[in-house]
Amino acid sequence: MGCFCSKHSRQTPGYEEPTILASETSFTVSEVEALYELFKKLSSSIIDDGLIHKEEFQFALFRNSNKRNLFADRIFDLFDVKRNGVIEFGEFVRSLSVFHPNTPQSDKIAFAFRLYDLRYTGYIEREELKEMVLALLNESDLILSDDVVETIVDKTFIDADSKGDGKIDMEEWKEFVARNPSLMKNMTLPYLKDITLAFPSFVVNSEVED
């Protein structure tokens, strides 16, 4: 007789036990189980191998698997902790946990810094900031002249680079975010608190009680 809730279906590469993931993140065991339902959906949308490929990530964000976007690339790269070109379940849960409403603001601020430190130098440099502004303009309907872009980047740099050495370090970033808290808005997904409601099928599949 078949059993649809068997562990067999969960032997996908990179699968990690929800109890362990819950102990290391802001999620409860039930929430990790619900995230597995979301993960299964995302990781089977193009290639059904239990791993999220970049095309699948892009498809989930834009409903278009070919849409290139600097920021989606950055998020994917940070989620792909092992740097093997795919997001495994454990990586997915640990990275999404940064966006949980209960996660300390300091973790969110550090993640955002890494996101914007395009060349992994430990600093956000002016050139990187300009590159990101241009990428944003490229993906939106906004048209700004190069002079206006230069002014925006200059003003931001003067404001953020309090030491005046031409680059923004983590300490300056923390101070800048404290003065501009709206910058952290997209680092919290209220949805993650309701994830068990969004993916209730985990209740059928759940192997662990919270």
């Binding site: 002014t151 800048f176 910058l183 808005k185 997209n186 994830i195």
Partner: peptide, 25 residues
């Protein structure tokens, strides 16, 4: 209005940073 924003505010409006799309059915 965008010209008055700081660069990071502008960047944070990117669709690529809006992960709530991942949860859309």
């Amino acid at each position: 209005k965008p010209a008055a924003m700081n660069a990071f505010e502008l960047i944070s409006t990117s669709q690529g940073l809006n992960l709530s799309s991942l949860f859309e059915k």
